[in-house]
Each structure stands twice: as C-alpha cells, then as structure tokens.
C-alpha cells in the first residue's frame, strides 16, 4: 500500500538560530495508522506537525501527501484535508454551535456536508460533553471541554489525516482519559489516520500504534 504521508530528509530551524531543531528526518505514514510521536520538550514535536500542514516552512526536505508535494498544494486545500488541532484549544467568542460550524464558512470546505443541529447535539455526548449545550458560550468551557470540542470540530471536516498536538497536556487525569478514549475510537472504529504528539507515557490499549521518538534532532520509529 502506498504511503498517505511521506516525509523525506526534513530539516527545520528558526531564523537567526545557528543549529537546526531537527535535520534529515524521514517518516512514512500509511492510511489508517495511529502514530504517537514522543520526545522531550523542545525536540520539535509540535513543529513536525506544523510542518506537515504548512503552518511552518522547512529549511530543507520534502513532504508528500497522497503522493503530491505539499508545497504544490494550495495551503487552504491541504489544510481542509490535513487538520491540525493546536495544543491550546482556540475558540472564538461565540456559541458552541458557531464554533463547531465555523470551518464550513471557509471556501475550501464549501463542498463538505454541513451537519444538522441534532447531529451536533448527539456528537457532543459522544465526546463526553453531555452537560454542554449548543447555545453555551464556548469561551466559558473548561480547557478539557474545549480540547474535546476542538477535536470534534476538526472531525466534522472529515479529515484525511488528523494531527493532534499534545491533546492532553493541560488536562486532569479524567479528562485526559476521555481524550485518549476518543483517539482510540477514531482509529479503531472509524479507521482514521492520526499523528499525535505527546510527552506522556501513554500506550493505547485497544489499538495498534507506532511509537516514534523525536530526540537529538532525529526521529526513531519502532518497526
């Protein structure tokens, strides 16, 4: 099976810095895989995800998505298929439903099916957001609730590849367990391709994952 994502010889460094964050990095991701990227803070885990969706520009190397160089794909079109969920969930000052439906107002998502309100309400329950209504102010939710809402918002766009940046970093144990359960379900039951960055010593119980460690400027993956 051909790779969904093929990263070759990727290097990244910040402007003005003499040493790169990482260099010569290779990674191949097949459809339906669940990749966990671990490593110490500052190793460039988040940067790797940001490079995959072109929120940052690499110093060198190529990233192919569905066989095409991402530099040749219009950025908005790439990001409507490869969705990145930030470490700190960001909501606009509006209701939960407005936040969930926000991406449908973007031209690149125009052909996607807009969910009905009943579907959104049912989905909130699946994401352990039972007490939250669609009219709720999104800014008033807890960080854990916002994190789950951010993942839900990304999934409504039917991403081909979902990138989750430290989705449990600011959460308590109970909220983190909920997010882990959602990730495992997405991969196991729905066959979604996921790349998740985490600093936690987390190993999923129900799904098979490939664990990659980003450390000392290189990425090492288990076979």
């Amino acid at each position: 099976m051909s790779a969904l994502l093929e990263i070759s010889n990727l290097s990244f460094g910040y402007e003005g810095s003499s040493s790169p964050v990482f260099e010569g990095l290779d990674l191949s991701v097949r459809e339906g895989e669940f990749i966990l990227v671990k490593g110490p803070s500052g190793a460039g885990k988040s940067t790797l995800l940001r490079l995959i969706c072109r929120l940052n520009k690499p110093l060198a190397g190529t990233i192919l998505f569905q066989g095409k160089d991402i530099a040749a794909i219009p950025p908005a079109r790439l990001r409507s298929a490869v969705i990145y969920v930030q470490q700190t969930p960001q909501m606009i000052d509006a209701s939960v439903s407005h936040n969930l439906l926000l991406p449908f107002s973007f031209a690149s998502n125009a052909s996607k099916k807009r969910p009905k309100m009943e579907e959104l309400q049912a989905m909130l329950r699946e994401f352990y957001l039972d007490g939250v209504t669609l009219e709720h102010s999104a800014l008033k939710l807890s960080v854990g609730q916002k994190q789950r809402l951010a993942i839900m918002r990304a999934l409504l766009q039917e991403p081909v590849l979902l990138l989750l940046d430290e989705p449990t970093s600011a959460l308590d144990k109970e909220s983190a367990a909920m997010v882990f359960a959602i990730m495992e379900r997405l991969n196991f039951a729905e066959g979604r391709t996921l790349i998740t960055v985490t600093h936690l010593d987390y190993t999923p119980e129900t799904v098979h994952t490939r664990i990659c460690t980003l450390s000392g400027r290189t990425l090492m993956c288990q076979s």
Binding site: P75, A76, Y84, Q86, I92, F106, Q157
Partner: peptide, 16 residues
Amino acid sequence: REIVEMRQALGADYRE
C-alpha cells in the same frame, strides 16, 4: 496569531 492559525488549520486561507 493562535486564533488565525486555528482558522488556517481548519481550512481557511489567509484572507479568511
């Protein structure tokens, strides 16, 4: 910046 990037990460172009 984080809000701008949130929108971009969900498929918005730079204008949106």
